[in-house]
Amino acid sequence: MAEIIVVTSGKGGVGKTTTSASIATGLAQRGKRVAVVDFDVGLRNLDLIMGCERRVVYDFVNVIQGECTLKQALIKDKRHENLFILAASQTRDKDALTVEGVEKVLNELKNDFDYVVCDSPAGIERGAHLAMYFADRAIVVVNPEVSSVRDSDRVLGIMASKSRRAEQGSEGISEHLLVTRYSPKRVAEGDMLSIADIEEILGLPILGIIPESELVLQSSNAGVPVILDDKAPAGQAYADAVARLLGEERPMRFVEIEKQGLIKRLFGG
């Protein structure tokens, strides 16, 4: 039976899709059977970040509405044969996702996979709620910035009261923070909330710290999840986060200011 992991944040543009793509790919690299599902109806993007946008034939809503089978809609990753992508629908009908429909698809996925990673849309509306509703585990993506921190606390509150686990009174969703776009230099200058600050404000364990990195944009441009760039600090940090998800202990890296060599300073890192 698969574990369902939601990647959520409340605030938009903080790195949910980047994270979903890298975490799913990382779990697949570690031999797990993984499905990654785009819940952002109307704003499909996970396919682009995963580099499979030209192979989307059917989507999530097609499966729910019985227009194709789940098997037909799942796109096999070109790099890992145990990783599959389910694209979001581009329909403008925000009600296309239903609780029953989502439950049916997730139940079917749970039989075939070890992990189902759900990439949530921004906000706290229907799509975001459905993405978190059936989750066993949540990765709350947060940027070291006031509105992102506040929004993630709101999302945590909603998960604590409006998820299925909460409604059934069973053990709650296990929650982790993933801090992305972290800049040790700006923290040292006193202009960015530190990891300790965020931990103190939100009171949750930190799964990983992903540094701000230009290579993330390059990876998106190429349609290759950044975790596959083993020279990119952000990619290495995602690999650490995946290891921690699997129960391994890893020290946090990329939290200190990097001593840059002259070449790197001249040509950028």
Binding site: D191, L193, D197, E200
Partner: peptide, 26 residues
Amino acid sequence: RKRKPASAAVAKERLLILVAQERAQR
């Protein structure tokens, strides 16, 4: 730089108060 309080410290104080308040209302 030392003249101004670091903006991150201000952010932290504001967030601690706000989050506590919003949790109480929740």
